[in-house]
Nucleic acid binder design. Structure first.
Length: 336
DNA sequence: AATCACGTCAACCGCTCGCGG
DNA sequence: ACCGCGAGCGGTTGACGTGAT
């Protein structure tokens, strides 16, 4: 067997006997098969005894980790999608480094994977911006710039996906028929129960009021679709919008004292950076308190340099929208 | 072709918590 | 109340892949 990685003597092996028996490092195919077979026949749990009974020279911890993070049949592979990024950013803003809790809302993703994503992607950008990942500055950047931008990207992807497959799907045809008659119906349906029977009632984009659905009944794309709705509602984008000198539609912050209150900007055919910077700067007009977002042009320059890298983190090839989600997101787009 | 730097991620570690004896 | 054990969590490490030089 291939024993790589840490040496046996650098761990908390308590006896010479254990040192001889225990194996560390990457799992082999044989070990994986042994673990899978044993779990299939006997179920999970009792990992220490499981390891012995399955004939694995591994700790129970190692077996558990291998199963949960890799061998479990419902483990999801591939890049973190834009929808998942949005969810991770939002949930982390609420719960911090509660990776397992966050992972509960991203079916198929493990806490380890989310943790790795955060450390390799998010913290990297904080470092490039020369600010602490836990600083208010960085959190504001996420809330007011990156997350709205993620929403834009998701909407754009949904629109592209729908237009590409519209003629081939019944859902798209139904959408077209529905959309040609009335636009009000679509927006009014947004805040009602969804097709999964999940009660979802976002209130003016305030995520504190966002009731996260039962994850057992919905996939992560649908969860993020609901989250998107809370970031971009027809009410705050149309009735309260104002135009700045760039022609950018800017929504005033309805409640800047609430750290989770989000406004989103409509940016028709504008460069993302310029438009968002204008929106970002204008946001200070609505925040006379200590929450004012005056970070200056240097900060934006640093952010802009890294912005595309950040947004390109999503993999559209893995953006497997089903017809239902495409329809839902299209309704959102057309209700704006 | 060789080397280096960097990013990714599987795996490990220490710690805490809950539970049963 | 204490102890031992199993399970789970968050932090960290290091092997590996890849692109740049």
């Amino acid at each position: 067997m291939d024993v790589r990685g840490r040496s046996r003597c650098d761990s908390n092996v308590h006896s010479e006997e254990d040192a001889v028996d225990l194996k560390r490092g990457p799992w082999t195919v044989e070990e994986d098969l042994a673990l899978m077979n044993y779990v299939a026949n006997h179920g999970e749990g009792r990992w220490n005894s499981l390891a012995r009974s399955a004939g694995l020279r591994r700790t129970g911890k190692s077996c558990r980790l291998r199963w949960l993070n890799y061998l479990r049949p419902d483990v999801r592979r591939g890049n973190i999608t834009l929808e998942e990024q949005l969810l991770i950013l939002d949930l982390h803003s609420r719960w911090g480094n509660r990776w397992s809790k966050i992972a509960q809302y991203l079916p198929g993703r493990t806490d380890n994977e989310i943790k790795n994503y955060w450390r390799t992607r998010v913290q990297k950008h904080a470092k490039q911006l020369k600010c602490d990942v836990n600083s208010k500055q960085f959190k504001d950047t996420m809330r007011y710039l990156w997350m709205p931008r993620l929403v834009e990207r998701i909407q754009a992807a949904a629109a592209a996906s729908t237009s590409a497959s519209a003629s081939a799907t019944a859902a798209a045809a139904a959408y077209k028929a529905n959309n040609s008659s009335s636009s009000n119906n679509t927006s009014s349906s947004c805040n009602n129960n969804n097709d999964n029977g999940t009660n979802y009632r976002p209130i003016n984009g305030n995520l504190e009021h966002l009731v996260l659905p039962d994850i057992s009944t919905m996939n992560n794309e649908f969860t993020s679709a609901r989250l998107m709705q809370s970031y971009y509602t027809p009410e705050n984008s149309s009735t309260a919008a104002s135009s700045d000198s760039l022609g950018t539609q800017v929504s005033p912050f309805s409640d800047v004292a609430d750290p989770y209150s989000i406004s989103v900007y409509e940016i028709p055919n504008q460069g993302y950076v310029q438009a968002n910077q204008a929106a970002y700067q204008e946001s200070s007009l609505f925040s006379p308190s200590s929450n004012s977002l005056n970070y200056g042009s240097e900060f934006f320059q640093a952010m802009d340099q890294n912005n595309q890298l950040w947004l390109d983190g999503g993999d559209f090839s893995n953006n497997l929208w089903n017809a239902e989600n495409v329809l839902y997101l299209q309704q959102q787009l057309n209700s704006i």
